[in-house]
Design a protein around this nucleic acid. Structure first.
Lengths: 261, 261
DNA sequence: GAGTGGTCTAGACCACCAC
DNA sequence: TGGTGGTCTAGACCACTCT
């Protein structure tokens, strides 16, 4: 006797019921949700229907499932990513200013790997921001940040050859004091002051390749951040192209309003 | 003769093939992708398998499907949301500084509706930022922003009664010149200067209720932004709680680095 | 080996759309 | 009316995990 599917469809009702239990705390972070067969009997339906309900929750980032073990309510330990001009110099000893310091301040262990230093043709978006022609050779430093051994961020720094060649920035090893220290070193060859950052955030779902690199479960968006650093004359010094999983971060921006109109 | 499913599963291969066609331009923005039955014959599989492949693309935000019509490659017309302290005063005549001005500058029509002005008990997150006890009565102004009649943002502004009562902020109508003008009006009762904003972005998948309010298709993340405005003494003046669909916006932050260390 | 989630087939009915 | 996507059932085999 198929009384058919009224509004809302069955799988949605099941997902709603589970979502309520998660938000109300009946199912806490890390708990295993009932197995598919348990849900089949509880809601008296078939397995594909409960699977569709669980898939919805997975797409919302509320649960993760592991073959052979079960489906679990996600935990979201998060790191705050802070962008604040006024604190930039205090923390610039890491390659990505603020990042390491922020993480350590939250009692966790931050690390970064230098994946590659190379000379490449500038991609369009990078070239536009560095104010050079697309395809011009540029230096790229590709890094990967981890927190407690979990991948947290991919960050590629781009520099014009005019700035980077002949400096530690173009060398395939870590830069003592960080790249910004080299840019600003009053005794160094560059001697420019970072006066402004412009950050563009594009938030979307990851491609399969990206979700593998960052080990993000399905249903978790990523932020693609293009941060351009300018000197006091308004010339672009660096473009940082980074990719961060949104479930592992909270973004915080501090914006000071000048007194003059 | 079931030769079973090798690595990668069938539905993933199908999704990959379609994704390549979308990214390579074979299927352009707005194009209809092949119907499910066409895909069934093309990949010689069953309908549920191709449906699962299309569901993946939908979850990635690459396609939207309409019952009875087909599935289409998504178009993403976007508005830039700019947060820059230095331009704040130039644009503050709208309720949400910068927003209207930014949109109009991009040649589109921005509008806002005042959904409600009410006195409510302060939610925890709001209370913490306003530096008052949770549950204390506060004034909330709930607004909805549209661009070319499409919902683009929900923005609820919270104010302490100490600040708002007896001012236009607590009145259920639009505030001439915007709320910030009232806060800063040198002839008005408040006379505080907005000196700093702190924005916290939490990016996640929407709840079903939220996706309905904002008319976001599945597979599109939302940003929940809590922006606190502080005066020159560091006292909180306003907390703006907003929700924006990420596929309709690009976020831009301009951060000025002070000269002194 | 029992239990779990992952994938797939085969077929059905429904709701919506365009002709 | 025929085509489209949306939902559901019933049953199968696989891969993984735990005991």
């Amino acid at each position: 006797m198929p009384d058919s599917h009224p509004n809302p469809p069955r799988f949605r009702e099941i997902a709603d019921a589970l979502r309520r239990e998660i938000h109300s705390g009946v199912l806490a972070s890390g708990d295993r949700i009932p197995s598919e067969y348990q849900l089949v009997t509880r809601f008296s339906t078939t397995r594909s229907t409960v699977r569709k309900a669980v898939a919805l929750l997975r797409a919302e980032g509320l649960v993760v499932s592991h073959q052979g073990k079960g489906a679990f309510v996600r935990t979201r330990p998060r790191v705050r990513l802070l962008s604040a001009g006024s604190r930039h110099r205090q923390h610039r000893d890491s390659g990505a200013p603020n990042y390491n310091a922020e993480v350590e301040a939250q009692g966790r262990h931050a690390a970064q790997q230098l994946r590659e230093v190379a000379e490449v043709a500038a991609p369009d978006e990078i070239a536009a921001r560095l104010e050079i022609a697309p395809g011009t050779p540029v230096i790229v430093r590709r890094r990967r940040f981890t927190v407690d051994d979990e991948p947290m961020q991919l960050a590629d720094g781009y520099y014009t050859t005019a700035i980077a060649l002949g400096t530690p920035i173009a060398e395939p090893r870590r830069v003592k004091g960080g790249v910004h220290a080299v840019l600003e070193d009053p005794q160094g060859p560059i001697r420019r002051r970072v006066a402004r950052f412009v950050e563009d955030l594009d938030i979307r779902m990851p491609t399969p390749a990206e979700s593998e690199l960052l080990a993000v479960p399905p249903g978790v968006p990523v932020a693609r951040i293009l941060r351009t650093a300018y000197d006091t004359d308004g010339a672009a010094l660096e473009v940082l192209d980074s990719l961060v999983p949104c479930d592992r971060h909270i973004f915080r921006y501090v914006i000071d309003v000048p007194a003059c109109s």
